[in-house]
């Protein structure tokens, strides 16, 4: 994950920064230049709540190389109270227990390391709310 690409994504990865279209009120996460709803180009910045509900999920047993030590791990599409949907791992629980309807909190975690010498990449993961 080369640094320039990583740095550009910091607002959405670190702060869950989203954009609300001034034309049609659609919430876009991460922010974009053109609204997928009305093709408008004027937006207001907003931050998502750090919580959500699992829409669909899976448990990855055959991981990409970077995630070898973490497998098996649960992944889910999580919908925040504002209606934004995002892809995230769900951790600190039995992966098979992550099912549609589960409520999660979004916590700041180390998502990946670029090998032994590259940069560290951070973002959010879901943790079940008990």
């Amino acid at each position: 994950m080369p640094s320039p690409r990583y740095t550009r994504e910091i607002p959405n990865r670190y702060r869950l920064e989203a954009a609300r279209c001034k034309g049609c009120d659609k919430l876009v996460f991460p922010a974009r230049r053109v609204c997928p709803g009305c093709r408008g180009t004027e937006f207001e910045t907003t931050e998502l709540s750090r919580s959500g509900k699992v829409v669909t999920s899976t448990v990855i047993h055959v991981p990409p190389t970077d995630f070898l030590r973490e497998a098996p791990y649960a992944m889910a599409i999580v919908e925040t109270p504002e209606g934004a949907r995002l892809m995230a791992q769900v951790v600190d629980c039995d992966p098979s227990s992550v099912l549609p309807g589960m409520e999660v909190a979004l916590e700041f975690r180390l998502l990946r390391r670029e090998g032994l010498s590259g940069i560290l990449c951070y973002g959010h993961k879901g943790v079940p709310v008990t």
């Binding site: 700041f108 951070y122 993961k125």
Partner: peptide, 16 residues
Amino acid sequence: PGFDEDTITISVAAGR
């Protein structure tokens, strides 16, 4: 710490 936790993630949680 989990494989995805370190001084930075702990600091963010405590800081929040």
